[in-house]
Design a protein around this nucleic acid. Sequence first.
DNA 1: TATTGTTATACTCTATAACTATA
DNA 2: TATAGTTATAGAGTATAACAATA
Lengths: 154, 154
Amino acid sequence: MNASLAASKLVDPLETNLGYQLRRLSAAAMADLSARLASSGVKPSEATVLLFIQANPETTQSAVGRRLSIQRANMAPIIAALEERNLIRRTPLNGRSFGLACTRTGATFAEKLKKSVASHEAAFFGALDGKERERLIRTIAALRNAVEGEPDDA
Amino acid sequence: MNASLAASKLVDPLETNLGYQLRRLSAAAMADLSARLASSGVKPSEATVLLFIQANPETTQSAVGRRLSIQRANMAPIIAALEERNLIRRTPLNGRSFGLACTRTGATFAEKLKKSVASHEAAFFGALDGKERERLIRTIAALRNAVEGEPDDA
DNA sequence: TATTGTTATACTCTATAACTATA
DNA sequence: TATAGTTATAGAGTATAACAATA
């Protein structure tokens, strides 16, 4: 157990750093999800927005963005991509905003996406039992809540 | 409680989606850390690598990358930035690789970074008590381990 | 005045391919 | 042959600023 031998084993000073560990896990999860969505030809952000619109028909683009923490400027190309693929339609609500809703194609597509997301979740978090999973969800929600505040319901 | 009233409350279909919640929390954490590091003029990735090098002197660039899951191609500019600011030095080990170590400046700087990281951790995860924190760390480690496999100690 | 949507732009992290040089 | 390091390039998410049109 001399110094050079001990030095040959790498130490991770960030092992107990929650932020870092979270970042690493999230990056791996994103890569996995991206790969599973690749065959559908949508990015994770597009899939997320489509599923949200499906669950909240006639919502406004900026309301979606506020709720998902996606800035207005970054929502525009996401909505444009979904509309171009005929997955959503935009109905003018007044002179400046639109109500968003899934098309029939989009609804079918959303069901397909849900399966991809479900298999991703199973592959990534299947090791957790129900209780652990529940606790993790609650912990994350509490942490997000503490930092971001309550979601804006607009 | 008519339909239009019920529709005015937005529903988040991804609320119980662990991957999504993780992504959101991680993004918020990254933004907070970036802001705290901004005054030091380093990116989170550079700070991470510097702290790792400080804890593992004379490690090789590619070994750092393997351990932190940063690709060789993406390590190059990180190392170049740290060296240019005189925070690390590179000593040739053989004709093709270098041993990395903190300079005196880098060691001092690393201590400063640790304080920024610590305040970030406190702000972000301070709401967790010791037991919750320990459990979260272990859960994340188990999940990462299940997906990425054991770290390569090279 | 405030909000909606858009465009332009930039930054950070990540990913792949291709190349040189060395083990 | 395999590895170390580099460069170039691209994709994804995110950020700010500025603008036109509308509430």
